[in-house]
Design a binder for these strands. Sequence first.
DNA 1: CTGAAAGCGCTTACAG
DNA 2: CTGAAAGCGCTTACAG
Lengths: 351, 351
Amino acid sequence: MNLPDQRKKHRITSLDIADRAGVSQATVSRVLSGSTLVSPETRRRVEEAVRDLNYKVDRHASSLRTQRASTLALLLFEDPTADDSGINPFFLAILGSVTRAAARHGQDLLVSFQQFSDDWHADYEDSMKADGLILLGYGDYVTHRAKLELLVAQDTHFVRWGAVLPDQPGITLGCDNVAGGRLAGEHLAAIGRCHVAFIGDASEHAPEFQARHTGFVEAMAEAGVEVDPALQVDAESTEESGYAAAQVLLARGLPFDGIFAACDTIALGAMRALREHGLRVPDDVAVVGFDGIPIAAYATPPLTTVAQNTAAAGERLVGALMAQIRGQPVEQVMLAPSLIVRDSSHPQAKA
Amino acid sequence: MNLPDQRKKHRITSLDIADRAGVSQATVSRVLSGSTLVSPETRRRVEEAVRDLNYKVDRHASSLRTQRASTLALLLFEDPTADDSGINPFFLAILGSVTRAAARHGQDLLVSFQQFSDDWHADYEDSMKADGLILLGYGDYVTHRAKLELLVAQDTHFVRWGAVLPDQPGITLGCDNVAGGRLAGEHLAAIGRCHVAFIGDASEHAPEFQARHTGFVEAMAEAGVEVDPALQVDAESTEESGYAAAQVLLARGLPFDGIFAACDTIALGAMRALREHGLRVPDDVAVVGFDGIPIAAYATPPLTTVAQNTAAAGERLVGALMAQIRGQPVEQVMLAPSLIVRDSSHPQAKA
DNA sequence: CTGAAAGCGCTTACAG
DNA sequence: CTGAAAGCGCTTACAG
């Protein structure tokens, strides 16, 4: 690629600053890196020259020398089926949270969307573009796992948001999904729903959904309600998939008075299917989602959901990655979710 | 900052590839930059070595030498009042679109959120971190303009998404907001609404909202309806601001049967205020928003909106910025919006 | 506290 | 078509 730059301005380097301040180039560098080995007067003169010439340290020269990019890369994985606009709002929220956290830690942030099917390896760190990676996305963990193992084998620094399980490659932070599933189960039992369907892939391919399902079944059982396996339908993390899964559920003809959806987008799709079938939410069917995406509050009716702590997620992810880069020990953390009750599971609805 | 790297692995350089392939380091570089000045056999041997050693060109060394970052920076500006989760979904959608477009153009993308009040200047380009900037956000244009002029004075490459007006500093791409306002006005007139309020700052501080207002008033006038200035209330681009503005509107006590909100988040807030006042949408008041954010489809009732073409926006923004970086002439472009009619302005509602 | 010098890993004229 | 060499702009031992 040929990109001739039309700008005429002379690029200002640390040598220009050195000349103007009457010191050596090395001293300029010391001032800018905050070294204590500089006299106050020298520092003042250099800083003045820096301000006068609007000088900024060249990132590439600095990084080449220090072998440090001061940059993190956020890779957001989507299901191959997702269309261009279909980024799950939950991960967009985490993206926002990570972006702020990276800035707080003085790191730049590269953002890229990847398909799960892509051959993405550790390109970012091998090319020194980033010191570490943050991986986000609901997707098939079984497929994903092989790539994570490759990253570990290559000593790539990375953290991911997902299911926190034993014997996983690398560091994973995530929501306490079992606890979240329990919140949903306890709530549905408390409002008297005895035939609650679960929509979402509850297999090892989707360990987060699986954990949510486990917590849900546990809590229902403790409330004396057996969850009927025939009321479980697989779904991926999209509205369309949730819609289709609810159709499948309805076609089975089994009676049910509640749905716990593995994530909010699934819940939105399921509510659409229920509406089309003339079923009222929550009167006929109470619906509970998971994630706490903004849209949930605006759904018809507003969707009860188990909210993940996205605000904390970014800080934790960046903090853990920075620690890993520094060679410090990093603990896998699970953040506590919280139940937000809205009209889709309103207690009064079903007498 | 001290970030000792614990990894032991020897970093593979082009010299390692040269040794393994039995050629000079310069030849390795030629192969990797796609030079034609290499024999097929040499190319093959080098590429094999690259694959064997999983070599990636060091971005910093390359960029230092070429004076090109192959990186774009996306700066998303928010109103200072926005809380941590409150990024306008519209700009999140553009962010997604830009991210994909940058990848298509072989550029990496740095993402950063900035406050309008921040002293952000052109740090990214001066430090060579990015070859150019993409600026996004609804905000006070009068304040913003001074900073844009500074960028122009510094010969910084940048494009922004906003109101396309004459005599603006730099390159702006945006929606044809006047046309969009007309779509809203025509639609509201067509469904027989004669007393339509406008919620949004329609001053030079918010030129996009102003243009939407202009188109709206024009179209209504052509349909024989005079828009009452007393039915206009300022609002910023947030749900809370829309809610508060609708309260102000209701407190005025003037009758109205429609609201055109300057953006969807304002519309969502306005609908919440209407609901709390016992007014039915669309029976009592038809509501039309602007932007086409995903939440709009899930609102109660689903929100009619003038949708911006976010999918095209990213490609246009990146394309224009790349052209500018190459020194090619760049045209300011306005993309056509489209009306999406939903229940919030259902024609049958008001007899 | 300061300066001279080496070197990070590339790209690209230059010479052949 | 290929190699030797210069140099991009920094940081950091090393010497004083």
